[in-house]
């Protein structure tokens, strides 16, 4: 029995919907991981010890345990505590927080690396420390780590396939459902792989644009 891709077009709508869900969850989780990463970085660097320690533990938890387990914990585990999140929301939170921790590590390093004179110049004009951080230091730190954050976002896109296990009908789950109906695993997984690749290309193009736009401001 050879390969038969003629079964694929019949599932085009379902796969396209899967692509849209994958993009939706990736974008939502990327936004959460970006701003969450900034917030975590600021907490790690400037919050008092009593605030910092629990967050340190949280970061360790998210970096030191499998993302799959984290998704299970958020989706299935939190129900026991009376928090019943929709699968999509649980997926966004899991992916978003997981990558927020990684982004935070990058942003922390970048904040520390911003020239001390920048903070001094801002303070000299009369800005408070907080204002100087928000207006002067953090924008530069974030700008400096856009390329590695971009790499994290590509990893996030690929790891978004994991949310299929909690029932978000994104691309991987759509392919699995089609396989369940047709018993054609190779065809649908291959098509899904190609679709991921194209989403990836689109994402890289967006990231390159952002990088180019921040070029002048260095």
């Amino acid at each position: 029995m050879g390969l038969d891709f003629s079964v694929v077009p019949g599932f085009a709508d379902a796969l396209l919907l899967g692509v849209l869900w994958t993009i939706a969850i990736t974008v939502a989780a990327a936004v959460l991981s970006f701003f969450g990463g900034i917030l975590l970085a600021v907490i790690a660097l400037y919050a008092p010890l009593l605030v910092r320690l629990p967050f340190r533990f949280f970061a360790w938890l998210f970096m030191g345990t499998p993302l799959l387990l984290q998704l299970f914990l958020i989706y299935f585990g939190l129900v026991e505590l009376g928090i019943d999140l929709p699968a999509f929301v649980a997926g966004v939170i899991g992916l978003g927080l997981h990558f927020a921790v990684y982004n935070s590590e990058l942003i922390q390093t970048a904040i520390v690396a911003v020239d001390r004179g920048q903070m001094e110049a801002a303070r000299t004009l009369g800005l408070s420390r907080g204002q100087a951080l928000v207006r002067v230091v953090i924008p530069q730190a974030v700008r400096d780590v856009i390329p590695p954050i971009g790499n994290n976002m590509i990893a996030l896109l690929k790891d978004s396939a994991l949310v299929s296990v909690i029932g978000v009908s994104e691309l991987t789950l759509s392919a699995q459902l089609a396989i369940g109906r047709t018993y054609r695993p190779f065809e649908f997984y291959a098509v899904a792989a190609v679709l991921y690749y194209f989403i990836n290309l689109g994402m890289e193009a967006v990231l390159r644009r952002i990088e180019r736009r921040t070029q002048l401001s260095r």
Partner: peptide, 30 residues
Amino acid sequence: RQQIGMVFQHFNLFPHLTVRDNVVMAPKLL
């Protein structure tokens, strides 16, 4: 400090802002 201007050896302009925004960021904010 709003009443005391300071100019540094290494300029310390804000590289992520245009010349205009370097000049007016603080007056706008403060």
